[in-house]
Design a protein around this nucleic acid. Structure first.
Lengths: 225, 225
DNA sequence: TTCTGTGAATTTATTCACAGCA
DNA sequence: TGCTGTGAATAAATTCACAGAA
């Protein structure tokens, strides 16, 4: 309906490109640590296990950050990419489910480092309610709507069993959440204005076993053929 | 080099197809529960949020499982897909890192249900060594090589901090592991005979914020234009 | 020279559209 | 009629290959 004419997105960015940006970000951190100020697409490609032309194309979608004959300034590129991923602001998160997975997510430094601030945690277990976990207050699940609304929380992280996930998602949607990261192994139905990203741990293993199974089978074929 | 002529893979299967198989598996479970014996590609597509033609093409890569005018027998399809994903056997897993994430992975029933058996857990913390976690014995990390080899463990799940991940991966490789699922936010360098799949929790959030940031920006554009 | 930025070529994945079977 | 299976058409992503800037 709307013509795509804004200068920041003359062509729409391919999904796989977006998925690669966080990987580049990790690489910049690596290079920064070893005081390397400039990187070439070739180097970046090598550590990210990607084709150099792909790297250049990915970066070029967002502007001309490199210098011909030289490469890319690590710091500049890091800042630009953070801006593109929306990591210049501190996003307000809610964690639903204060079990082991929830605790792992809070402890794991990656969230805070990338500018995510967990504003509240929720759990059904009354013995947990009122306590703090890694400095984050735990509320009962009935409080989700009110607290999420009051604290203007933008992203919900669902770390509850599959049986409870849809109910939690409904509450988050009611409270005006903008995006959900779902660790429960089930699909969620939400209005299409709300972004959902699912991480299914068992799926990842099943993807591995597909290849293991396949290679076992071709070994057998080799012997019998 | 080698001509691809085996009947089970006349054409090589697209990666995205493989990634969708676990999703189909979840859907079959749903339909089985509600005693629906037959599904059409349309129904399967609706719950999986995929195009029906895509569903048919995905399934047809592996054989002709459907019946024209009718649909697919849920039970048959479920069994076939499990076979293709290698889920008919019980895979032997090692969990490295018995912190909150490791515990969450053990507790989360999805692994056992999909036929994964965690044979041993490992941790650097001496106070954990010798104890059991969800019925799985915890060993010290120096035991990785011996235990993995003795128990013929095939898949390693790395749930340790990034700083320790590469060392752990090296030990697993030495012990003859075939695949690694890596939850540490870093790339691992392993021989190419070993499969690695990384799950980066922060990346998933960053993917979400990219879209949130973009929609915020286009809102502003709307007002100023 | 070296390395970026980018059209063109190629490869891969998705969707259409319909023949064929129940 | 209703649905699968699949070539053909389309769309999307990757890679090549080279012009152009430092």
């Amino acid at each position: 309906m709307v013509k795509n004419s804004s200068p920041s997105k003359r062509k729409s960015i391919p999904e796989p490109t977006i998925a690669r940006l966080p990987r580049y970000l990790r690489s910049f951190a690596q290079f920064s640590q070893s005081n390397q100020l400039v990187i070439s697409s070739k180097e970046l490609a090598a550590v990210s296990d990607i084709n150099p032309a792909q790297v250049r194309k990915d970066l070029a979608y967002f502007g001309q950050f490199g210098q011909r004959g030289v490469g890319y300034d690590v710091k500049t590129l890091d800042e630009k990419m953070r801006g593109i991923l929306g990591l210049n602001k501190s996003w307000r998160l809610a964690l639903i489910g204060a079990g082991h997975l929830g605790t792992a997510l809070l402890q794991y430094g990656g969230f805070a480092k990338a500018g995510f601030k967990v504003e509240a945690a929720f759990d059904v277990d009354p013995s947990k309610v009122g306590w703090e976990l890694e400095g984050v207050k735990i509320w009962g699940t009935p409080a989700i709507r009110q607290v999420v609304r009051e604290k203007k929380i933008e992203i919900g992280v669902i770390a509850v069993p599959a049986s409870q996930a849809q109910r939690v998602a409904d509450d988050l949607v009611d409270a005006g959440i903008r995006a959900i990261l779902n660790f429960a192994p089930c699909a969620l139905s939400v209005p299409k204005s709300v972004l959902v990203r699912g991480v299914d741990l068992a799926s990842e293993l099943e993807h591995l076993t597909y290849f293991l199974e396949k290679s076992s089978k071709s070994d057998k074929t080799k012997n019998s053929g």
